[in-house]
């Protein structure tokens, strides 16, 4: 496992979910006879003026608000995504400018499929843990692409989560340790200049998601000398509703432990935002002293696992920004035609 020499934690956290949803059964209405099993109930859909940059900005503003921190004090603003609006030009500079963190700040865009955000979190732990930085903002955000009629279309959603890493003594949750497990496993990818990713169907399960997730999680538990029962809550990357529940069960976590952070049935897979958003939703309900075990997953493939302990500070900071429930409750459903228009799936000729 990896531990910084100086203890670190989260001094703030922020989440963003777009207002719009499309029901999985509406997507099924377009492409199947309606008899197929649906992987989620609905997924979030970005509005026509939203992208990874705008969602990152709102999640980051929520994280800064919770921390009560001026953006000028950030040493880094890092955005992890597989849907950066530009192929060449950083998302991070727009986000840093909008927050007021520029110009004396490091920015970079991270890419590792669905764990680009947790890569930034691990790097942030290193920056703060080494004393190079006091505060680092690690963001995971995506407006995920899916080919019409593909199995991924039911789940490829949009959302963002921002985690503000700082010294442990100022944190609302300390991060005890992390671990990364990575192999070359091509379960899902998108080639240069191609509009939609492809995936290996059943290959995305056992050798990909489950192997990386359970390997990272079980090793961190072993290194810390813990068992799943030592944790109040657990969060797993959630490409659908079933995978995180199956991974949790395999490792020995209960349904109750993962319930607060399981957002995929309602909003689908927010890709780089998914595990981090699950952590944000869990922090919304956690009490001081609670412990949270988080495992991300990115196709390609790898997992990062983290062990967190919630502090008393959560009580004064939690309500400084909208809770996950506020974003979940403002939902408005759109039909497939509106979804297709907004997501650029109509060829205008």
């Amino acid at each position: 496992m990896m531990k910084p020499s100086r203890p670190v934690g989260l001094v703030g956290y922020g989440l963003y979910i777009p207002r719009y949803r499309i029901a999985a059964k509406e997507i099924a209405r377009m492409w199947t006879d309606g008899s197929a099993a649906l992987p989620v109930e609905a997924k979030s859909v970005p509005g026509p003026d939203e992208d990874t940059i705008t969602m990152s900005i709102e999640a980051a503003r929520n994280a800064l608000a919770r921390a009560g921190l001026s953006a000028e004090r950030l040493s880094a603003v890092w955005v992890g995504s597989e849907s950066h609006p530009y192929s060449v030009k950083p998302s991070g500079t727009v986000v840093a400018e909008a927050l007021g963190a520029a110009p004396w700040v490091s920015t970079a865009d991270w890419e590792f499929a669905c764990k680009a955000g947790s890569e930034a979190l691990t790097a942030g732990m290193g920056m703060v843990g080494s004393g190079m930085a006091e505060y680092v903002l690690a963001i995971g955000a995506d407006t995920a692409q899916a080919r019409p009629s593909d199995a991924l279309e039911y789940t490829a959603a949009a959302g963002a989560a921002a985690l503000l890493v700082g010294p442990a003594e100022e944190s609302l949750a300390t991060i005890e340790a992390t671990i990364s497990y990575v192999t070359d496993t091509p379960d899902f990818y998108r080639r240069e200049n191609r509009p939609y990713p492809v995936h290996g169907n059943r290959f995305t399960g056992e050798p990909a998601y489950f192997h990386q997730t359970t390997s990272a999680a079980s090793r961190l538990l072993a290194d810390l000398g813990r068992t799943p029962q030592d944790y109040t809550y657990a969060v797993f990357h959630q490409p659908n509703a079933k995978f995180p529940q199956a991974a949790a069960k395999r490792l020995g976590f209960s349904d109750a432990q993962i319930a607060p952070g399981l957002l995929s049935p309602q909003i689908g897979n927010t890709y780089s935002g998914a595990a981090l958003a699950g952590l944000c939703a869990t922090l919304d309900v956690a009490k001081p002293g609670d412990t949270i075990f988080v495992t991300s997953y990115g196709s390609g493939a790898g997992s990062d696992a983290y062990s967190l302990v919630v502090t008393d500070t959560i009580l004064e900071r939690r309500s400084r920004a909208p809770l996950t429930a506020a974003y979940l409750n403002r939902k408005v459903f759109v039909d497939y035609a509106v979804y297709a228009k907004w997501r650029g799936k109509l060829v205008m000729g």
Partner: peptide
């Protein structure tokens, strides 16, 4: 903060 207008495929966002 949102994306404001369509500037075409080669336009700055």
């Amino acid at each position: 903060t949102r994306h404001l207008k369509d500037t075409g495929e080669d336009g700055v966002l």
